[in-house]
Amino acid sequence: MLKVNEIDVYYGAIHALKKLSFEVEQGSIVTLIGANGAGKTTTLKTISGLLRPRSGSIIYKGTDITRIAPAKIVEMGISQVPEGRRVFAAMTVLENLEMGAYLRKDKKEIARDLDEVFDRFPRLKERRKQLAGTLSGGEQQMLAIGRALMARPSLLLMDEPSMGLAPLLVKEIFEIIKDINSKGTTILLVEQNAHMALSIADKAYVIETGEIVLQGQAGELMKSEEVKKAYLGG
């Protein structure tokens, strides 16, 4: 479904991604794990079109999206839950969700998806008129996920959804990710919480200073000595 081919991304002189390649198969959960500054966020921003690779290409459903406008990429079915949630704090919960469906015109279907999001996150429903900035961290994460779902994505990019959440909530969020996937949405999950990510993913890539250093089935990587040492605290 998504094929990233040898992309090079720079911030000025900083070479953030070096000939990075990986693939995401339709229907799967793929995780990209790596330490701080490895280049995970840069990768997702490049897929969404916020950053442009200097070379290489990104192919989505057979179309080259490397130089396509971000709005078009959303329209084609890729949405993102950005790092740090980035909800619109001064807008209400409902308005945030409406923003997720910004490009859609099918009012009836939007209303249906809204109900679905509220079913999935009843706490958001109770707080629909509340400003997003007044939500707790966990609720904001749910809002960020709900907002991305409102675009009805085929491919959902998630940047460290577990960041800063209590262990119980982290578990809940990962359950939700699994459930979203089981309903047909393909997921590319970026995480530092390697244990959780590997436990729900099909395939995994390990990224270090802008390069893929390891890849394989998530279950295998979980057992790999290198991964254990570097990412699983063992």
Binding site: S48, A71, R86, F88, M91, E95, M99, Y102, R147, A151
Partner: peptide, 21 residues
């Protein structure tokens, strides 16, 4: 819709772009 987009862009341009604004 335009007004909401204006508020979203005022608050966080990158996040607004991710919405397709």
């Amino acid at each position: 819709k335009t007004g909401k987009a204006m508020r979203a862009v005022s608050e966080d341009k990158d996040a607004a772009v991710l919405m397709g604004i």
